[in-house]
Amino acid sequence: MTPTRMSRRVFPAIAMIIGVAVSVMVMFAAPPGAAQENGQGQGRPGDYIAIDGKVDQGTYDGYIAYTRACLACHGPDGLGSSFAPSLIKRVQQRTFSEFSNVVAAGLQIQPDMVMPSFADDDYVLRNIENIYSYMKGRAAGDIGRGRPRVIDEAQGQEPAQRREEDASAKN
């Protein structure tokens, strides 16, 4: 079984809302209390599982989504480029709400330094949480450079199952 994160399943519905009204993102600032109390790897945005450099499926999807949609500006592995900041550094100071807000709405402080809005991009919206998790893992030093491997069955069962239980409890 490939480990998956339940929260990804509930997210698309919320993601649809981002496209409509960015202000709705405030929701993420105050996630359901139960989820808040759980520890690491419990299906909140930014959670991830990393064992020996291998990651859960959602975080892996985050890496692929990042590579497809963000690398061209934010550089390989979130490290930043000559014209967009390192997201590894920034996620340390940004809540998921702030992070997803920028992705949905875009940002332009200087005239030609455009952070585009991804409000019309379903693929990115579906993966914001995964990208955030991937960046958090990078920031903590748990995920290295390059394409991470997905945790295989034998190794991954334990934490993945725990996560699913917790996530379903949340529902």
């Binding site: 550089g75 592995d77 930043g80 480029s81 014209f83 748990d142």
Partner: peptide
């Protein structure tokens, strides 16, 4: 800038280097 600005800004990967 250009691809060089994206790819080389942060430095290339060292296959020998440890995590982080």
């Amino acid at each position: 800038g250009g691809w060089a600005g994206i790819g080389l800004a942060a430095g290339l990967e060292d296959p020998e280097e440890g995590l982080g």
